[in-house]
Design a protein around this nucleic acid. Structure first.
Length: 584
RNA sequence: GGUGGCGUAGUUCAGUUGGUUAGAAUGCCGGCCUGUCACGCCGGAGGUCGCGAGUUCGAGUCUCGUCGUCACCGCCA
């Protein structure tokens, strides 16, 4: 028997009991005549003592111990003469009679402690060592606990957890597919699923009624802190439901998770049309932990011979409470922020609302105090506030103002990680114009149903058609999204033609689905949550890498196993593949 | 595909206008130490300054390229 107890288990009540522990050597403190060893496992740390009366054999064994050696220690639990109230086992120690070195360890490249000395790069390379550290392991435990609660909730609502294939068919819409060559079908390829979309709809045709799956999805696109090439979705679909049924069910799940995981209770989630989210926050995933909403002051500010504003399609202002005291340096900082190429504003106009009721702006040459008073009134600005104004074409300016608003939220500490403000963004556009391809593509996916009241626009003004599509947004993070599906093969054909598919292409790509719809498809709708994003949000982290046991880096590489890698010529031959690696 | 940050001891970092022998902390090794728990004290080892070119009397420092890594833009139905 390797152990009778874990390293987090022994207490004063175990005093004078014999115990055997196994674990990793965290640290050895040699005081000369006596030596303390901190023994660590997943559950905690227990102090071992080897004192002067111990056998020479034991003492020489202890002298050999190094960090991360795996050992087994047998002895008797006793009360410490000087206690450590920082750890749960701090009142006792194990008086060691016998030690067995189960495995030696070379010196680890960084310290295995809560506050490690190692940087990201080296910890990723030795991820198995990093995972020994409490903060990292706790993130994995949080993830596992979350999965448990999700299953618990959905199982309780009669959802059937169903696995769907990982080797599927490549489709032209959406992200790039990861491709897998087929040996048995030479010259043909599988694709890894970007999501189990069509399968879950087929499960609805199959009458499963309620399906879910916590499932890996794959997208071959460039990565970010919140994007990995393989990621996990909570994927769901329901039959005989309308949009509200989905929203209510998954608002329930989200609320249940917030309660179980964070002990947070939140109000009913607001439901905001997409167009309103853009007008008020310049984003389809607004962070509503704080206000600072947009004010369209275009009509108020035009006509004063200030060319920048007079020529602008849109002039938007936000009001930063209490920031009238911002220094020249801080304002220059904000100007530089919005002028960064990624944000792309030409400049920034500010108005300081002074305590004495006067205004100081960067455009005083063009506007009187009375003019600016109107801006302030429109922005609900009080004395002491700072109004920030961006102008230009509507889309870019809203986007830049959104970034500025978030930056101000950060600077003012308004984005507290312990506050959770979810909302539903609804009524997304059905289609999005693709300037490069000169055609529409589906904003959500090609199976999303248009709103019935917008059907008449399908032929005349497709860009204006709204969809029965919705996103769950928490704290400015897109947690998930879904839609009410098309379940009529006629309407589905119309959609495909709007998206520029010929009948033949549609048949080749999605014939199986349209065929299935001929056999009595029920009305259905679904949603998918980004499991990694939700976990990182609950863990208070900015990167989903921290809630993935073995993540990939920015370039899609696993630096631990060093993948991807080249393969043997024999393997290529077997697949009838020939490489032609592009130069430059 | 693009923009920017970073790359110096095992690790995390400092390194002045470009100027002698590149430092600190921590880790590691050795010695001392009977109540430590970030033990303490004394001593020691440890460097292709990512790589390659260039400028210069002289480059860790400046320039260009390249590789790695991170963040972002494009991209991600």
């Amino acid at each position: 028997m390797y152990r009778t107890h874990t390293c987090g288990e022994l207490r004063l009540s175990n005093s004078s009991q014999e115990a055997t522990l196994s674990g990793w050597v965290q640290r050895v403190r040699n005081l000369g005549a006596m030596t303390f060893v901190d023994l660590r496992d997943r559950y905690g740390i227990t102090q071992l003592v080897i004192d002067d009366e111990s056998s020479e054999e034991l003492k020489s064994l202890v002298a050999k111990l190094g960090r991360e050696y795996v050992i087994q220690a047998k002895g008797v639990v006793r009360e410490r003469s000087s206690k450590n109230n920082k750890i749960p086992t701090g009142e006792v120690e194990l008086e060691v009679k016998e030690i067995t070195i189960l495995n030696e360890s070379v010196i680890p490249p960084f310290t295995i402690e809560d506050e490690s000395d190692g940087g990201d790069e080296i910890r990723m390379k030795y991820r198995y060592l990093d995972l020994r550290r409490n903060p990292v392991r706790n993130n994995m435990i949080l993830r596992a606990t979350m999965a448990h609660h999700i299953r618990n909730y959905l199982n309780g609502k009669q959802f059937i957890e169903t696995e769907t294939p990982v080797l599927i068919k490549s489709t032209p819409e959406g992200a790039r597919d990861f491709i897998v060559p087929s040996r048995m079908n030479q010259g043909e390829f599988y694709a890894l699923p970007q999501s189990p979309q069509v399968f879950k709809q087929l499960l609805m045709v199959a009458g499963f009624d309620r399906y879910y799956q916590i499932v890996k999805c794959f997208r071959d696109e460039d990565l970010r802190a919140d994007r990995q090439p393989e990621f996990t979705q909570i994927d769901c679909e329901m039959s005989f439901v309308e949009q509200d049924d989905i929203l209510n069910t998954f608002e329930g799940l989200t609320r249940y998770l917030l309660k179980e995981m964070k002990n947070v209770e939140v109000d009913e989630f607001p439901r905001m049309p997409y167009s309103e989210a853009i007008e008020r926050y310049g984003s389809d995933k607004p962070d509503i932990r704080f206000g600072m909403e947009f004010n369209d002051i275009s009509e108020t500010v035009k006509g004063n011979n200030f060319k920048v504003f007079d020529d602008a399609e849109y002039i938007g202002a936000i009001c930063a409470e209490g920031c009238a005291t911002y220094t020249r340096k801080q304002l220059d900082g904000l100007t530089n922020f919005v002028k960064k190429p990624q944000i792309g504003a030409k400049g920034l106009v500010y108005v300081k609302c002074n305590e004495d009721g006067s205004f100081k702006s960067s455009v005083d040459k063009f506007y009187s105090q009375e003019d600016i008073k109107k801006w302030a009134d429109q922005c609900d600005a009080k004395a002491g506030d700072l109004i920030l104004v961006l102008s230009g074409d509507k889309g870019h300016t809203q986007n830049a103002l959104c970034e500025l608003r978030l930056e101000m939220g950060n600077q003012l500490g308004l984005r507290d990680k312990n506050v959770f403000k979810p909302l539903w963004v609804v009524d997304f556009p059905l289609l999005e114009w693709d300037e490069d391809a000169k055609r529409f593509h589906a904003m959500h996916h090609p199976f999303t149903s248009p709103k019935a009241e917008d059907y008449h626009l399908l032929e005349t003004d497709p860009g204006k058609v709204r969809a029965n599509a919705y996103d769950l947004v928490i704290n400015g993070v897109e947690i998930g999204g879904g839609s009410v599906r098309i379940f009529d093969s006629e309407l589905q054909s119309t959609m495909f033609s709007l998206l520029g598919f010929t009948k033949e292409q549609a048949e080749y790509q999605f014939g199986f689905l349209m065929n299935a719809f001929k056999y009595g498809a029920p009305p259905h709708a679904g949603i998918a949550f980004g499991f990694d994003r939700l976990a990182s949000l609950f863990a208070g982290l900015d990167s989903i890498r921290d809630v993935i046991a073995f993540p990939k880096n920015n370039s899609g590489r696993d630096v631990m196993i060093d993948s991807p890698s080249i393969i043997a010529t024999e393997q290529l031959d077997e697949l009838s593949l020939k490489l032609e690696v592009k130069e430059d």
